[in-house]
């Protein structure tokens, strides 16, 4: 680990010029990822960043690690192959709402379901950026774009609900410009064994500016956002306007809290990352503005053996039971006969 101690954020910057639009939320995410990497106790050569297609998918070019910029939507599958082949590597997928939720939805679903031990960072800006501004699968109904001049009539998908539905063992949400929270979420995602799915709310300055301003702006965030913490009640809001979230029979509601009132006694739900069923996390994922605050943090984190670990265990156990494969014995197995000269 000697090297891990010495390397710094700078060691993770590649020699390539970063080419996102000025004001793009990706800059902040890149800086924070590079900042966290040296703290993770992983040698630089053991990091692999894999991406698909889209603005976010340029990410690996700017990381001085191993990187693979692949094809649209397929990054989770390529990452699955990498992790199965080399379980010791730290594999990170960078995707977007179009790449991950639209063309790559199937791969994302099955990768999460298998619980492959990788980190999936989904940058959600609710628009197609690289193709210049069409509505995406997470865009709001009614959004006017070049391909929806009369407003989008697609109902949006909620990435965290999708991940929970696929049986995700780790689901979190954070915000591009909230550096400490973003970094802490990345650390947690890395610690998790299994698929860590992180939605990063990210601003597209050019095609969907200020989509997440309520949680990006420090002041607005206090009343419009809610950071969830394991074991703490779901409370938010500024002094004098504190509120909490009650979840009853899976249905959330807002409770106004008086000064000094005990939120738990008032019926506010206590956040737990390890509820047996994902129903609570699903309810959390359904909270949307303006009726509710937008929650961020780790929604769910449970333990389950990861796919590549189970696969490697099968290989190891086959070797214990049957010995290392003997090709000569295989080719001569079953009925054979000899033709004499």
């Amino acid at each position: 680990m000697a090297q891990a101690v010495q390397i710094t954020q700078k060691d993770f910057s590649s020699d390539q010029d970063v080419r996102w639009c000025p004001g793009c939320g990706d800059y902040s995410i890149l800086a924070n990822v590079q900042r966290v990497m040296p703290e993770l106790g992983v040698r630089r050569e053991n990091f692999v960043f894999v991406s698909g297609i889209g603005c976010s998918s340029r990410f690996p070019y700017y990381m001085n690690t191993y990187g693979f910029h692949t094809i649209h939507g397929r990054a989770p599958s390529i990452a699955t192959g990498i992790k199965c082949a080399r379980p010791e590597l730290s594999v990170w997928v960078v995707t977007g709402d179009g790449d991950g939720m639209s063309i790559g939805g199937n791969h994302l679903l099955h990768t999460i379901r298998r619980n492959v031990d990788i980190q999936i960072l989904l940058f959600n800006n609710r628009v197609y950026g690289l193709t210049k501004g069409q509505y995406s699968p997470t865009s709001r109904v009614g959004m006017n774009t070049k391909s929806s001049p009369e407003g989008s009539i697609d109902y949006p998908i909620q990435p965290l609900a999708f991940a929970l539905g696929a049986g995700a063992t780790f689901v979190a949400r954070t915000v591009d410009v909230d550096a400490p929270h973003l970094q802490e979420t990345l650390r947690r995602a890395h610690e998790h064994r299994g698929t860590a799915f992180v939605e990063i709310l990210q601003n597209c300055h050019v095609f969907n500016d200020d989509e997440w301003i309520e949680v990006e702006d420090r002041k607005q965030r206090i009343d419009a956002g809610m950071k969830v913490v394991d074991g703490a009640p779901l409370v938010y809001g500024s002094e004098g306007a504190r509120r909490g979230i009650r979840i009853e029979d899976g249905v959330p509601s807002v409770i106004e809290l008086a000064d000094g009132q005990d939120p738990v006694a008032a019926g506010v739900a206590v956040h737990r990352e390890r509820y047996e069923t994902p129903a609570y996390a699903f309810a959390l994922a359904s909270l949307a503005r303006p009726e509710f605050p937008l929650p961020t943090g780790v929604f769910r984190a449970i333990e389950n053996p990861s796919y590549e670990a189970l696969l490697s265990a099968q290989v190891a156990s086959a070797r214990v039971q049957r010995g290392k494969g003997d090709l000569e014995a295989l080719l001569s197995s079953g009925d054979t006969w000899t033709v004499e000269a």
Binding site: F68, T70, I78, T80, G81, I82, C84
Partner: peptide, 9 residues
């Protein structure tokens, strides 16, 4: 795709 990933690795 998984096979390509494995080859890369």
């Amino acid at each position: 795709s998984s096979a390509i990933g494995a080859s890369f690795a």
